[in-house]
Design a binder for these strands. Structure first.
Lengths: 218, 218
DNA sequence: ATTTAAATTTAGACAAACCTAAAACTTTAT
DNA sequence: ATAAAGTTTTAGGTTTGTCTAAATTTAAAT
C-alpha cells in the first residue's frame, strides 16, 4: 500500500461516513484536492486490488478489505493525535498535519505499543472515536449543540469542524471537551445561542452551535 | 526534500563518516541497495540543489547544507530510536526499520518536543551520538574491544555492527551498554578474548570483539 | 604505452501518481 | 424526448525514481 492509496481509502471512508454508499468521483477529487481524472486512475488500481467496488460512471464503495484498511489508517491517525497532545503537549489544532504523516508508518507493533502507552484511548483530541485493532468503535450518542432546545443540558464531547480556526476560537473562549453546557436561550432572529458553560455565560452564533457536539445529560 | 533524497544524503554522510571525503558512485549504490546509474541520476539532482559537490567521474561530497540536512535526518532517526526503546519497550534490535520510516516525518516542533520528552538524550540505543538541533555532537572517546590489551578495563558504550543478529547475540549473552568489561586474556591462536563482564567470565570471538566499542577506564 | 578491467555515465524504458484536453456517458430541464 | 449541463472517463503527457544495456572515462596491469 502506497501513501496515496491509503489516502484515497481514507477519503472514501470519510465521505461515505463509514457506510457502504456509492461515492462519486468528483466527491473524492474534492476531498483529495486532486482532479477527477486522477481519481478514476486510482479507482481502477484500487479496484484491481479488491479494495473498492468500482463500475464505470457508477461511483465506488469500499470492499470489506478496503474498509478495514481505512479503519486501520484512521486508528493510527487518531492514536498519533492523542500522543501528540498527551505526550508532546501539542494543542488540538496542531496535530492534524503531523498525524497525517505519522498515520502511514508501517509497524503493527508500533501501534500496539503506542495504544498501550496512551492507555488505550477511546477518543481522539477532537472527540472522534478511535477504532480498536479489529476496527470496532463505539459511536457516541451525541447531538449538535444547534439541535438542543432551551434548558437542555449536556457535556461537550466533540467538534464537527476540526479546522485550526474553529479550534483556536474554542480555546480563546475557554470551551473544551468535557465542559458542561446549558442552553439558556435561543435567539430566533439570528439563530444564536445563549449558553452557560462551566458557570460562565456565553453567546455563540448558530455556526458555532452547529459544529459542537454535546451529549445530553438532562 | 523527498524521502529518497534524504536517504541519499544520509548514505553519503555515513559512507564518508561525516567527513568531506569524495564518495564513489558505487559505494553509494551499494549502501542504498540500488544501481550506480540511479545514483548518478540522483547526484545530478542533489548537485542541482546544492546539496552535494559533484564532478562527473570524480565522486561526490556533501556541501555544508547537505551535511546539515543529513545530520538533521540522523538526529531524527536516533531520537526516534530512543523513543521506541524508552517509551514503547522496543528492544534495540527492533528499532532500526521503524526509525527509518519515522526519520522522514517533517515537523520541527515534533522533534523538539520528542527531544524534550526523552530528556535530551546524547546517545541512541546503540551508543551512537545524537546531533543537537545545530548538528553538533560529541564524539565519544571509544575503542573497539579488539584493540584492547590484557588487563585493560572499560565500559561497553556502543556497537559497530548494529545488525539484529549481533544485537540479539549480545542480549542472549547478557552483554549490554554500560557493562564493565575487563580483558583477562587474548588467545593468539584464533584472536578470541577471555573477558570478565560484570563479574562473569566470558569468551568471545575476535569478530565479536571487533564490533563492540568500549571506553577505557584504566 | 597500450591493453584490459573496473567504474561511471548516458540513453532509453518503465511504473506511479499526477495533469490537461477531449470524448463519452448521465442527469436535468424544458 | 431531446438539448443542455454536469459528471466521468479516455488519451496522451509530465515528473520522480528506478531499471537495463551500451558507451565512455578512469585505473590497473603488463
Amino acid at each position: 500500500m502506497t501513501h496515496s492509496e491509503e489516502n484515497y481509502l481514507k477519503a472514501i471512508f470519510h465521505i461515505g461516513k463509514g457506510g457502504a454508499n456509492e461515492i462519486s468521483t468528483n466527491a473524492i477529487a474534492e476531498q483529495m484536492e486532486t482532479k477527477p481524472s486522477s481519481v478514476t486512475d486510482m479507482m481502477k488500481k484500487l479496484s484491481e486490488k479488491n479494495l473498492v467496488n468500482y463500475k464505470k460512471y457508477k461511483g465506488v464503495s469500499l470492499t470489506a478489505i478496503g474498509k478495514s484498511m481505512a479503519l486501520s489508517i484512521i486508528r493510527k491517525h487518531r492514536l498519533w493525535e492523542v500522543f501528540l497532545v498527551e505526550k508532546l503537549d501539542f494543542s488540538w489544532d496542531e496535530v492534524h498535519d503531523v498525524a497525517e504523516q505519522l498515520e502511514h508508518i508501517e509497524s503493527e507493533k508500533l501501534i500496539d505499543k503506542l495504544d498501550k502507552l496512551l492507555d488505550y484511548p477511546k477518543y481522539d483530541p477532537h472527540g472522534d472515536p478511535i477504532p480498536d485493532k479489529n476496527g470496532n468503535f463505539k459511536v457516541m450518542d451525541k447531538k449538535l449543540l444547534s439541535e438542543l432546545s432551551v434548558n437542555d443540558k449536556g457535556i461537550c464531547v466533540g467538534v464537527k469542524d476540526s479546522s485550526s480556526q474553529f479550534l483556536k476560537f474554542l480555546d480563546k473562549n475557554k470551551i473544551a471537551l468535557g465542559d458542561i453546557i446549558e442552553v439558556i436561550d435561543k435567539e430566533d432572529f439570528d439563530g444564536s445561542f445563549q449558553l452557560k458553560i462551566n458557570a460562565n455565560s456565553f453567546n455563540v452564533s448558530s455556526q458555532i452551535a452547529s459544529n459542537l457536539y454535546v451529549q445530553i445529560t438532562e
